[in-house]
Design a protein around this nucleic acid. Structure first.
Lengths: 200, 200, 200, 200
DNA sequence: GTCTAAACGAGACGGTACGTCTAGTCTTTCT
DNA sequence: AGAAAGACTAGACGTACCGTCTCGTTTAGAC
């Protein structure tokens, strides 16, 4: 009784909801978008939305999860700097313009909703990091990075600058800025960092 | 007529509002906190809040702006790595626990409110960066960093890892993780990054 | 969309609102009664009240319209003076005590709200006058009044004294006062009034 | 301390308040008029209004009390019917148009405020009735009315029709309607009413 | 002609209720 | 049984006035 049966679910309703959500998010911004508005635009009852999703954040996540392939593409030309510039640039494009990007909105909403945040990790972040790690392994194999590279450090340094600027409204980095940062990060990963002083 | 007169403002009411805001934000989280709730706890009328602030985000900003000195302190012991570890650690502590930190909430709210975001930059971020730049200049003077260091790159690389993990709910970095990242960043800034291939 | 569907209306909510309105009007007086108070007492959301009524006056009107039968009863014993004394007395009772009578409050509220005033006419006054006219026709048939009687004059003279005293806070007329006035009015209607001087 | 000193009262402020009240009452209607609005229009502080009056009804009463002479004028040409037609007509004019007449508004407000109602009686109604009684005594002296005439009945019957129509939004009576009613009332007062059946 | 106490303008304050909005639940009817 | 429609409870929103309360600033009577 309590749990709906996915087999009988209306694909028409599901699709209409997801598309309306993307449209409204772009038009009004996530904060001004309402579940009532989605239901009305999708020609769907509110109940149907509440039956299948627990919040408007989850709806948006599902709407975006199907499309996020672009940013998760990691080119592998054999030139790590060039590839990471391209990859980070595609992430920046996904987040632009900051005001109306559904991805940026989703990330922001994750800050206020722990459940959504966890879902984002599972559906978007973890797969992304898995592909990132693959590319790093490829770079190690190509001797562009040392085998000892710390992938946790790597992902934080490559993407950190983008989110640092995102959260403080400093303006997303443009191409040259991104390239400078990528070059610094690659250098850092190759050097292994400033050595710790000998213990004792 | 339309604009209230700051001279006649009640300091009692102002203080009560700011304190209630911090308390409620910690207790319920920013999203569940309401202006009605702040007014009631502060023993203040809603009108008084609306008279002086335009949103609950602005209230929280003002409440925090007076206290943010801690994170904006940049120790200068002569050892850049050690100082930046300490400094970034204090930032992480300010943002912990992620769920109930008023600072983390404020940053998150800035993502949905451009006006608030701009105010945060002016009141918190810009002064912070100014002090950061000072410390970097000191490091240059002490020959810990090259004179050619790009301070925009530096701030993004030092703080980016923290916000990268914050926005994706990856857990804020702990001490050892922070140290590893700081060491990489310092190395990167010293190296000046992987050189660009000669043009043409 | 904008207009609610009466078929789906909750009878429970409607009844609870009307009863709470009467109770509160008697307890606090109409002026001190609030829509919030009605909603709370009725266990109903404010939205539900605003959906179906446009003002607290309209709510009270609907609450009273169902019960106003008493005052609209016109006994017909064959003795016009006796019957009109009884009838006007029942009107006075409906308006007593002046302070807390919902009917008196409704009439007063009609003075400040033209829309309500019109609704009162349609729902209460016009049906009342129709029954009054019937009784007058019966009196004409019984030769208690001349066929030439002006019913507009009649209704004004029978009920005017009550409202004259009501609006000026002169105290509603008691039984003997009412009887004296009714006797004068009947005499006036029988006489046809002081004759006009011949024109020219 | 608590009671203000009438000697030092500012006549300028008093006059400005009374005039603004009349103006706003005509423009917006009594119900929509606010003390804040009066204060602003009069260039007076709210405190000044609250110092000298206890409600906006009292303000309006004082504003009108100075001007009500017209309606309280009772012509005495020796022709009672003609004089009372003129007099009641001037009352009707004072109450027209029903929507925006400050007098009608004041009467309506008296329905919701017993203190105001009492003040209206003292300042307006009682003096009016005193003059009415004078005119009736004159009519008795001129043998237009019997010496046994009941003045309470008389005032109710002359003015009742006006207020009956006022409170029910039936439209104030026009000249011919008034005349018809006056003629009936005079006839009723002359006849002394339908006689009571002999007791026992 | 000062002095001084009170009335004044201005408007911030704690409140209350307004009428609107959206959330999330529940009910009815149709498919 | 799922879905469309939409009424329902709940409660926050931002606004409008209320009546009270400082603040300086006139201002008018007493000295």
């Amino acid at each position: 009784m309590g749990t709906p049966d996915p087999v009988r679910r209306s694909e028409r309703a599901r699709t209409a909801v997801l598309e309306s959500t993307i449209d409204l998010c772009r038009a009004d911004g996530f904060a001004r978008m309402t579940i009532e508005g989605i239901a009305e635009r999708a020609g769907v009852s509110k109940k149907t939305i509440y039956r299948w999703w627990s919040s408007k954040g989850e709806v948006l996540l599902e709407a975006l999860a199907g499309r996020a392939e672009i940013a998760a593409a990691f080119p592998d030309s054999g030139d790590l700097v060039r590839d990471m510039c391209a990859q980070t640039m595609s992430v920046v494009e996904l987040l632009s313009p900051q005001e109306t990007s559904p991805y940026a909105s989703l990330v922001a909403e994750g800050q206020r909703d722990p459940a959504l945040s966890a879902a984002i990790r599972t559906r978007l972040v973890d797969p992304f990091i898995a592909r990132f790690d693959e590319r790093m392994h490829s770079a190690v194999a190509a001797r562009e990075l040392p085998a000892s590279v710390d992938l946790g450090v790597a992902v934080d340094l490559f993407y950190g600058p983008i989110y640092h600027r995102l959260v403080f409204g400093l303006g997303l980095p443009d191409g040259p800025q991104l390239e400078t940062r990528v070059r610094h990060v690659v250098a850092a990963l190759r050097s292994g960092g400033v050595p710790r002083p000998p213990a004792g």
